[in-house]
Design a protein around this nucleic acid. Structure first.
Lengths: 174, 174
DNA sequence: CCGCATTGTTGACGTGGACAACAAATTACG
DNA sequence: CGTAATTTGTTGTCCACGTCAACAATGCGG
């Protein structure tokens, strides 16, 4: 078996000791940043910057928490939606999650090879596949949801219950 | 030369029903039987899912808004931080932005080829490079910041000024 | 019946994240 | 002082993923 998901490394290397000795003579802007403090500049006023950092942090924690069953965030979302909408088509699933149809095909190949999902012929439309979870898929989904719930629980203290709820609500605008 | 940035497609949803965009005035807008009757299941209670969708939306809008100067979100963050911390090293920059050192090398290679950044030898440490913007880099950064500000302005109405501010504040926890 | 849209699929390309390995330079330390 | 360890920038490689083009099979509308 392949090593499956790649383990993401948690700790960045924060290492800088020497004071900022710079050559440039003209420095009309802020004073030279202290060895440990680098100015983010206007990045501080951009949602996208923080959104990306947050998303990466969350995904890394998710991957770590679900590493025992080797389910990625994308795979999790696929399993969840199939589980909640048995018999839906690949196009519907892809459209719902914002995944490319082509991408979903290969993802389902893998999930099917792992015995978690099935593609049954649709009774009324010869083009479609009716997606469903196998017995093993249901079991895995249950475990995944339990672990994902634990992951989610680590997020709340990090934000505070109030801001957590607010964030969850606000981000639905997209 | 590379074919510049790939244009991201603006219309995200519309995967399953009829995409009625056609040249003629024919509007075959066929109401699909069950529009969006697909259940997201427990995904509705996961920050990560919405965080990812929001982040993608924001980045796509950012890319579109800055397409005239061909600056990606990552490139923008690099230019901003260099501009605000002239003379910093690649390791410091990479550590600040959470980018791999290896990745930053190739990014700077490109920015340098475009004449936007420079790598000067550090006076006190032979290993480091003192990063700075060229004159053109400063000009591009100014334009980029103006366009990025416009991009940011489209976000506020989408969320409401109040939630925008809360979001920006809450996401700093990561 | 015929043209057109949809569905699933494959192939290909480019980007970006993660790792490993290095050479040069610097630091730590016996 | 000298040698080992560490840091920095760099290159090469692998893999995940978004995107696009093309296709066969199927369904549907005129």
């Amino acid at each position: 078996m392949p090593p499956a998901k790649r383990i993401l490394q948690p700790g960045p290397d924060q290492s800088r000791r020497k004071a900022g000795v710079r050559a440039a003579g003209k420095a009309p802007l802020k004073v030279a940043p202290s060895p440990s403090a680098i100015d983010l500049g206007v990045l501080n006023q951009h949602l996208g910057y923080f959104a990306r950092r947050m998303q990466i942090w969350i995904f890394q924690d998710f991957i770590k928490k679900l590493s025992s069953i080797d389910i990625s965030p994308a795979q999790f979302s696929v399993l969840v939606v199939i589980g909640a909408n048995e018999g839906l088509s690949q196009a519907e699933l892809a459209g719902t999650l914002g995944i490319e149809r082509a991408r979903l095909v290969r993802m389902l190949h893998l999930l099917e090879k792992r015995g978690l999902t099935q593609r049954l012929p649709s009774s009324d439309d010869g083009r479609r596949h009716a997606l469903r979870l196998t017995r093993a898929g249901q079991t895995t989904l249950r475990r995944a949801q339990a672990l994902a719930a634990q992951h989610e629980e680590t997020l709340k203290p990090k934000l505070g219950a109030e801001r957590y709820r607010l964030l969850l609500d606000a981000m639905r605008a997209f």
